[in-house]
C-alpha cells in the first residue's frame, strides 16, 4: 500500500479560547485530490496553515510525506506547494521575477518559469510587473508559483474564489494535471461544483469538525435523494411535477404523473453536495 502523502490524526487548533479545529483526521494519497468543503470559518484554512507549518497544532499529529509537520523540515517544505487564498505576490516584481525568486529559494538552478507561466496563460505578460495584473491573472500567478517546485503535495486554498468561469475552468484543468502527475492535492473550497468536478474525495468540514468524508458519488448515494422532474402541458400553460425515486410508491406515482397529461420534458435530478452539506449540518456552504 502506498504511504499517504498527507496523514492527519486528531489535530486541533485554537485561536485563544476559540477552538477552530476540533480533532480532525484524514489522509490524502499521492495523485489524489481531496476537497475540503465548508463555509467560511469552518476551519479549512487553519488546517492548511497547520499542515504547511505556518502554525503548530495544539493537539494531535500530522505527517507530510512521512515527516512530522512540527519538525519544520526545509527538505519537506521544498516538496510542498501552497496557493494562498490571499494574493500574496511581490507586486513590484514581474511574474518571471516572482517565479525565479521563489525557485531560487527552493534551490532550483534553472527554473522553467516561462513554461509554467505558459501553462496558466501568462507567458506573454511574463515581464510585466504583477501590480499591472487583473485579479484573475494574479490568481493564475498564485497557482503557477505553487507549481514552481513540482511539488509532491499541493495545498490550494480557494484557488478559484471570485474568478470568472473561463479562468476557473483553466485553473481546474491545471490542478487536474498536477494530480495526474502524482501530486497529492488538498483543495479547500466552498464551491460545491468545483469540489464535485475536481475531487476524488470530499470532506465536509463544519465548525472545526469533519462531518463526512467520501467520494462525491458515495456521498450523493448515501445522503442524497434522487428525483424526477416532469413538465406537462396544462391547457394553454405548463405545470411541473417532482417525483421522489427512493420511496416504495415511486413507480406508481411516476406512472400516474406521466399519464396525467402531455409530457414536455423529463429530467432526473440528484442531490448536490451543497444539498447534502445542508442536510448534514443545517447550514449552507456560503457565509
Amino acid at each position: 500500500m502506498t504511504e499517504a502523502a498527507i496523514k492527519v490524526e486528531d489535530i486541533t487548533y485554537a485561536y485563544g479560547d476559540l477552538l477552530a479545529v476540533k480533532g480532525i483526521s484524514f489522509e490524502v494519497q499521492p495523485g489524489e485530490i481531496l476537497g475540503f468543503l465548508g463555509p467560511n470559518g469552518a476551519g479549512k484554512s487553519t488546517t492548511i496553515k497547520m499542515l504547511t507549518g505556518q502554525v503548530a497544532p495544539k493537539g494531535g499529529r500530522a505527517q507530510i510525506l512521512g515527516a512530522d509537520i512540527t519538525l519544520d523540515d526545509p527538505d519537506i517544505q521544498a516538496r510542498i506547494g501552497v496557493c494562498f487564498e490571499e494574493k500574496n505576490l511581490y507586486l513590484a516584481m514581474s511574474a518571471k521575477e516572482n517565479l525565479d525568486f521563489f525557485a531560487s529559494l527552493y534551490g532550483i538552478k534553472d527554473p522553467d518559469s516561462l513554461e509554467i507561466l505558459r501553462r496558466v496563460g501568462l507567458a506573454d505578460r511574463a515581464k510585466d510587473r504583477v501590480k499591472t495584473y487583473s485579479k484573475g491573472m494574479r490568481q493564475r500567478m498564485m497557482i503557477s508559483r505553487a507549481f514552481i517546485n513540482k511539488p509532491d503535495v499541493l495545498f490550494l486554498d480557494e484557488p478559484t474564489d471570485g474568478l470568472d468561469p473561463v479562468t476557473s475552468a483553466s485553473i481546474r484543468a491545471t490542478i487536474k494535471e498536477e494530480a495526474a502527475r502524482g501530486a497529492a492535492v488538498l483543495l479547500t473550497t466552498h464551491d460545491m461544483f468545483e469540489a464535485d468536478e475536481l475531487s476524488d474525495r470530499v470532506a465536509f468540514i463544519n465548525d472545526g469538525v469533519i462531518v463526512a468524508i467520501d467520494t462525491p458519488e458515495n456521498l450523493k448515494l448515501k445522503y442524497g435523494k434522487r428525483s424526477v422532474k416532469i413538465r406537462l402541458r396544462n391547457g394553454s400553460g405548463v405545470r411541473e411535477e417532482t417525483v421522489a425515486l427512493d420511496t416504495p410508491q415511486s413507480g406508481e406515482l411516476l406512472k400516474e404523473v406521466v399519464g396525467s397529461g402531455e409530457v414536455l420534458t423529463i429530467h432526473t435530478e440528484e442531490a448536490t453536495l451543497e444539498d447534502i452539506f445542508i442536510q448534514m449540518t443545517g447550514r449552507g456552504l456560503v457565509g
Partner: peptide
C-alpha cells in the same frame, strides 16, 4: 502586510 512573508515561510525559508 502584503502576505509575502507567509509565502516565504511555507517555502524552505525560515
Amino acid at each position: 502586510e502584503n502576505g509575502t512573508l507567509s509565502a516565504l515561510l511555507v517555502s524552505p525559508v525560515k
